[in-house]
Lab assay of single mutants.
Amino acid sequence: DIEITTNGEEDAKRVIKELQKRNLEYHIEVHGNQWVIKVR
């Protein structure tokens, strides 16, 4: 598993777009303004 910590929603959406392009499965956890994306 890979864990990507982003700085808020805009940053997270940019990362998610890339993950979707590669058809990767991911899970999002929001901790305040930090979005942690866990990639399987």
Score class of each variant (00 low, 15 high):
T5D: 03
E10A: 11
I28R: 00
E3M: 14
Q20E: 14
R40N: 08
Y26F: 13
W35Y: 07
A12I: 04
T6D: 01
D1G: 12
E10S: 07
K17Q: 12
E25G: 08
W35E: 00
G32N: 07
K17G: 08
K38M: 09
N7T: 11
K21A: 13
E18M: 15
E18W: 15
H27M: 13
K13P: 01
I16V: 07
I2V: 09
V36Q: 03
Q34W: 11
Q20M: 11
K38R: 13
G32D: 07
D1H: 12
T5Q: 08
A12H: 03
A12F: 12
R22W: 13
H31V: 13
E10C: 12
Y26P: 02
H31E: 05
R22K: 09
L24K: 05
N33F: 09
A12E: 01
Q20W: 06
E29P: 00
I28A: 03
Q20G: 04
A12K: 03
I28H: 01
V36C: 04
T6S: 04
E25L: 13
T5I: 15
Q20L: 11
E25Q: 13
I16M: 08
V30N: 05
T5Y: 15
E10R: 09
I37R: 00
I16Y: 02
G8S: 15
E29R: 06
D11S: 10
H31P: 01
E3S: 12
R14L: 10
H27W: 14
I28T: 03
A12T: 06
N23C: 06
I16P: 00
Y26L: 04
V36F: 07
G32A: 04
H27N: 09
W35V: 05
I4G: 01
E25V: 13
W35I: 09
T5H: 13
E10Q: 09
G32F: 05
R22M: 14
K38N: 04
V30R: 12
G8Y: 07
W35Q: 02
I37D: 00
D11H: 12
E18A: 12
T6Y: 05
I4H: 02
T5W: 15
V30D: 02
G8A: 07
R40P: 07
H31T: 09
V39L: 08
I37L: 03
R40G: 06
E9G: 06
E25P: 11
G32S: 03
V36T: 06
I2H: 09
Y26E: 00
E3Y: 15
R40H: 14
N33I: 05
I4M: 03
V30T: 06
E29Y: 10
L19T: 01
I2Y: 15
E3W: 15
E25Y: 12
E3D: 06
I4K: 01
W35L: 05
V36L: 07
R14Y: 10
W35F: 06
G8W: 06
D1L: 14
N33C: 07
R40S: 09
G32K: 04
Q34I: 15
N33T: 10
N33H: 08
E18Y: 15
D11P: 04
Q34F: 13
N33R: 05
A12S: 04
N7W: 15
I2N: 04
G8N: 15
T6F: 11
A12P: 01
G32Q: 05
I4A: 01
L19Q: 00
I2S: 05
H27S: 15
K13S: 07
E29V: 10
